[in-house]
């Protein structure tokens, strides 16, 4: 049986990647978010029969994979998990779309082409988003939200909530293990136990919330005084500019 620690270790895998020193990790999250959003919008805007531009935009995804901390195998595994959803979407394209289009002198059904470009769009947008997240620490993502004028109290809520997810998951896993260890009903699921655990967590969350708020106040917390660093540096701006120019060329060439 996996320990609570081991299970949580698995959950923090992204956090570990974000702590590494790959080139993409060093870029400002503000720049990464802007580049990712522009890339996603331009990728989606490609015509459903336009294979060339979809393939050209894939080159940017390959470039990001090369400078990001996530391994190609991990990216493929993640795409495999998500693929049923997109495959369900495109599987009927060849049946409904019977139009004939010409590609490199060959006549092909538009349904097959649109299915292919949709899969490419899915691969590109999902991979880029995951690479950006895996190369950025959560607190950096949160503080960059301030750059986009998100209210400060919401950003601080996000940061505290993110930390709390781990604390609560740890509590939940430990409680479930304790229940299992003292259960004489084998692997049977008991709603009675679950009700008790859930109600305990509600009470715990209130107490923890109060303690955390006290700890914040003790350290002089006042929302108006809390400042965050999120200004991109010259190198970040250069990376963002080059990336955007490349994406636009690949999209509109």
């Amino acid at each position: 049986m996996k320990t609570a620690q081991e299970r949580l270790q698995h959950l923090t895998a992204f956090e570990e990647l974000a702590e590494s020193t790959f080139p993409l990790n060093l870029v400002s999250p503000v720049v990464k978010i802007i580049v990712a959003v522009v890339f996603v919008v331009l990728t989606i805007s490609v015509d459903k029969y336009d294979i060339i531009h979809s393939l050209l935009l894939t080159s940017f995804t390959c470039f990001l994979i090369a400078i990001a901390p996530l391994k190609v195998t991990s990216v493929l595994k993640m795409l495999l998990y998500l693929s049923p959803f997109v495959l369900l979407l495109v599987i009927f394209n060849p049946l409904y779309d019977k139009s004939i289009i010409g590609i490199a002198g060959y006549q092909v059904y538009g349904g097959y082409v649109s299915a292919f470009t949709t899969v490419l769009k899915f691969i590109n947008t999902t991979t880029v988003s995951v690479l950006i997240v895996s190369s950025t620490k959560f607190n950096h993502i949160a503080s960059s939200l301030r750059f986009f004028r998100m209210p400060k109290f919401l950003v601080i809520q996000f940061m505290v909530m993110y930390r709390f997810i781990f604390i609560f998951l740890y509590d939940i896993i430990q409680s479930l293990q304790a229940v299992k260890a003292r259960s004489f009903q084998g692997a049977k699921f008991s709603w009675r136990n679950m009700k008790a655990i859930v109600s305990t967590f509600f009470v715990k969350s209130v107490l923890r919330g109060e303690e955390v708020y006290n700890a914040m106040l003790s350290r002089g917390f006042e929302i108006k005084n809390f400042k965050m660093d999120n200004r991109p540096k010259a190198g970040d701006v250069f990376f963002g500019f080059c990336s955007l120019v490349y994406i636009f060329i690949m999209r509109f060439i």
Binding site: K137, N139, A142, V160, R163, V212, A215, R219, N225, M228
Partner: peptide, 24 residues
């Protein structure tokens, strides 16, 4: 755990100084 409420060690230690206006 109740005192380390921010997502990283840096952010936790930086919490107090930020509240008195220290940045960069």
């Amino acid at each position: 755990d109740n005192q380390l409420f921010m997502p990283s060690v840096f952010e936790n230690v930086a919490f107090s100084p930020r509240n008195i206006g220290i940045v960069g």
